[in-house]
Amino acid sequence: MASSAVIKKSDAVVKKRTFHRSPFYQGWKRFKNHKLAVIGMVWVVLFLIAGIIGPYVAPYDYRSGDFLAINQGPSWQHIFGTDNVGHDMFSQILYSVRSALIIAFGATVVSFVIGIILGLWAGLRGGIADMIIMRAVDFMMTLPGFLFALILVILLGRGYTSLILAIGIPGWAGYARLIRSLVLGMRDGEMVEAARALGASQAHIARRYMLPNVIGSMGVALAFGIPGDLTQIAGLSIFGMGLQPPIPSFGNMIAQASDNILGFPWLLYFPAGIFALTLLAFLFVADGLQEAFSPKGGN
Rank of each mutant, 00 (worst) to 15 (best):
F47P: 03
L48F: 15
L48E: 05
A50M: 12
G54V: 14
Y56P: 09
Y56L: 15
V57F: 09
A58R: 12
P59C: 15
Y60A: 06
D61H: 13
Y62N: 03
S64R: 09
S64K: 09
G65N: 02
D66Q: 00
F67N: 07
F67S: 03
L68I: 06
L68F: 00
G73N: 04
P74V: 07
P74K: 12
P74W: 15
W76E: 13
Q77I: 01
Q77T: 04
Q77K: 13
I79D: 03
I79F: 05
G81M: 02
G81I: 00
G81T: 00
G86I: 06
H87L: 12
D88V: 01
D88E: 05
S91K: 05
S91V: 01
Q92M: 14
Y95P: 00
V97C: 12
V97S: 11
R98N: 13
S99G: 08
S99Q: 13
A100T: 06
A100N: 13
L101R: 13
I103W: 12
A104Q: 08
A104Y: 10
F105E: 13
A107L: 01
V110K: 05
S111I: 02
F112R: 12
I114F: 14
I114Q: 09
I114A: 02
I117R: 12
L118K: 06
G119W: 08
G119T: 02
L120W: 03
L120P: 03
A122Q: 00
G123C: 07
R125I: 10
G126Y: 01
G126W: 02
G127P: 00
D130T: 09
D130K: 00
M131V: 08
I133M: 06
I133Q: 04
I133E: 04
R135F: 14
R135N: 05
A136Y: 07
V137G: 03
D138K: 02
D138C: 11
D138M: 11
F139C: 07
F139A: 10
M140F: 10
